[in-house]
Amino acid sequence: MGEKDTTEKILADYNDVFADIINGLVFKGEQKVTPESLENISTRSVYKGRKNKLHEQERDIVKLWKERDIEFAIYGMENQTLPEKYMPLRILGYDGATYRSQLQKKRKRPVAVLTIVLYFGTDKMWDKPTHLKDVIYIPEGLGEYVNDYKITVFNIAWLTEEEIARFKSDFKIVANFFVHKRKNKDYVSDDKTEIKHVDEVLKLLSTMTGDERYEEILAEKEKGEYNTMDTVAEHLVNMGEARLGKLINLLLQNNRIEDVKKASVDKEARKKFYKEFGIID
């Protein structure tokens, strides 16, 4: 969460990407939501806490879906890189605030609020509760009277090829990347699909993978066009080889012959040496 959520929002906040995610995941590929039918809504809401103090809560992305003067629904999108136990409580708070906001605006007929959670983890599928009743204590005898609340979580790295094929925007490239990354941690993309929002995709990948070289590519864009994942991957390989060469030279200068051998074959040892010499991995 934190920085990772903020980075992802940069890409998904584009209407073409947001609409594509909703169409691909919620409507199973039917093109019901168009980018032109989406309007931004404030992600901030205010509520009263203890001692009537006002508090702000902020969502990742919220958009109103409408055609002309007809409002259909309000979509919220939350991004997670780690499963979170109390996510149902968070989503309930967000959705409740959105419904309350509609009442304050005196809408004749409030519209449905739907929040989806995009989970980008690759080590394991979402394994935390998706129902409110699973995270709260319910005294005996009250179970049938306490309302439940279910959240919808999409495990992006576990999407099938058929599901990925439903996407039309840059999110297809992102989803494909995470699926392959789950299957092979050393995955090198050969995707030749042109990226529309290059900066946002590379920033997302940099934050989600912890590989700062994606950010470095952004600074080098004037030296070459890296607008497909295969060209990005090729550049990453070249950068990796250059760093390894620099590391080996430094080790040789310090007469660390055994460490040269380790750096050549042991990935974890190589990371340790990179950190020791201040070389960004």
Rank of each mutant, 00 (worst) to 15 (best):
S169W: 03
N184G: 08
N176S: 15
Y187F: 11
K185D: 15
Y119I: 00
F178G: 04
V153S: 03
N155K: 09
V188L: 14
P110E: 09
V174E: 08
K150T: 07
V146G: 12
A157K: 01
E161S: 13
A157P: 09
V153F: 05
I151W: 04
P139K: 01
D170T: 08
Y187S: 06
V174W: 06
L159N: 04
Y145T: 08
G141Y: 10
F178K: 02
I173W: 10
Y119T: 05
V174F: 11
P110N: 00
F178T: 07
E144Y: 07
I136W: 02
I173Q: 06
W126H: 12
F177R: 04
Y187R: 00
N147F: 13
T130L: 02
K108H: 09
E163Q: 15
D186C: 04
I164H: 05
L132I: 03
F120I: 10
A112Q: 09
A165G: 08
Y187C: 06
E162Q: 10
W126K: 11
K168Y: 13
D127A: 10
T130C: 08
I151R: 01
R166D: 02
Y119F: 13
F171P: 05
V135Q: 09
Y137G: 00
I138D: 09
N147D: 12
D127Q: 08
E140G: 04
V117N: 11
H180T: 02
K172A: 14
W126N: 09
Y149I: 01
D148T: 06
V179T: 13
I151A: 01
K172T: 08
D134Y: 08
P129N: 06
Y149C: 03
Y137A: 05
H180P: 00
F171M: 02
F167G: 00
K183H: 14
D123H: 10
R182I: 10
F178A: 07
P129V: 01
V117Q: 06
F177A: 07
K172V: 08
N155I: 01
E163F: 01
G143T: 15
N184D: 15
L118A: 08
K128A: 12
F167M: 06
D127C: 08
T152V: 15
T122Y: 06
F171K: 04
K172E: 10
W126C: 01
N184V: 06
V179R: 12
T160N: 14
G121K: 09
F178V: 05
P129K: 01
N176W: 14
I138K: 04
K185G: 09
A175V: 04
H131F: 14
F178Y: 12
K172D: 12
L159I: 03
G121Y: 00
E140S: 06
W158N: 14
K181D: 13
Y187M: 03
K128S: 14
I164S: 02
T160R: 08
G143W: 13
D170M: 07
I116Q: 14
Y187H: 05
L118I: 00
L132P: 00
T130Q: 11
